[in-house]
């Protein structure tokens, strides 16, 4: 079976090489090597795995995100929610780092009337600030409250896995700064990447899977409680988001 698979792959590669060479011959700008690389290299799907058991709520990620991306005051690309649950002695305090989930089926993209928000080939969703008109439709469409209007640019802004750092071959700022290695970043399409191995070998979950957005940010040790659950308490819950002063308590 595996041998058969290998031969198919090889023959496909050969075929693609042929196509690549033909494409290169037609398009004078691309050299044959580049063309082949562009076609045969498998598509990336960047994702993040957050191990909430390792998070201590130090906000290093929030702070590094602000300084890296020049996030305007009062707005957040990345933030940490503190959830206090239960009463002594049966109580817990846990932390939930939040960011854009870079969904595979993102509704923000499908409602954007100008295509300013789009999904890149590597799965990252970005907003083109020069195209975005700031209609705020995507802010409503996002089930994760991950988007905000940047008052300086007039465009909607959100986490993009530190795109400019990725292009320099670095990890996103929140990952690089997480001293307890609670965040793991990588290519989910590469079965040998750390994140793929961790996602495969742990019980992971995503936020609001019922929304059908297929998030690419995974969590280990996700709890059900969030800020909106306070209205229907099943037990004592207090959520501090460090995000919105108007949050309902």
């Amino acid at each position: 079976m595996s041998k058969k698979l290998k031969t198919t792959q090889q023959s496909r590669r050969g075929f693609l090489k042929g196509v690549g060479a033909a494409a290169a011959a037609v398009g004078a700008s691309a050299t044959p090597v580049q063309a082949v690389a562009a076609i045969t290299e498998p598509k990336k799907r960047y994702g993040m795995l957050i191990d909430t058991r390792r998070c201590v709520g130090c906000h290093a990620c929030s702070v590094s995100c602000r300084s890296e991306n020049n996030v305007p005051e009062g707005k957040h690309r990345s933030w940490v929610e503190y959830t206090e649950k239960g009463t002594f002695p049966n109580a817990t305090l846990h932390f939930l780092p939040r960011l854009c989930n870079q969904c595979s089926d993102p509704q923000c993209v499908s409602v954007c009337p100008t295509n300013a928000t789009h999904i890149r080939d590597d799965g990252i969703i970005t907003v083109d600030a020069d195209v975005c008109i700031g209609c705020k439709y995507c802010i409503h469409a996002c089930p994760y409250d991950a988007r905000f209007l940047n008052p300086e640019t007039g465009a909607v802004d959100k986490c993009d896995f530190c795109l400019d750092r990725l292009e320099q071959g670095k990890e996103p700022a929140c990952v690089a700064t997480c001293f307890n290695r609670a965040r793991i970043f990588g290519d989910l399409n590469d079965p040998d990447s750390t994140i793929s191995r961790m996602v495969a070998s742990n019980a992971v979950s995503v936020l609001r899977p019922g929304m059908g957005t297929l998030p690419n940010v995974f969590y280990i040790g996700l709890d059900y409680a969030d800020e909106h659950d306070i209205r229907f308490p099943r037990q004592y819950i207090r959520v501090t988001t460090h995000r919105d002063e108007n949050i309902r308590r």
Binding site: C132, I133, G134, K136, L149, P151, G154, A155, V156
Partner: peptide
């Protein structure tokens, strides 16, 4: 629109 309010 956010863009209008930001001067675009």
């Amino acid at each position: 629109l956010g863009s209008f309010q930001a001067g675009h």
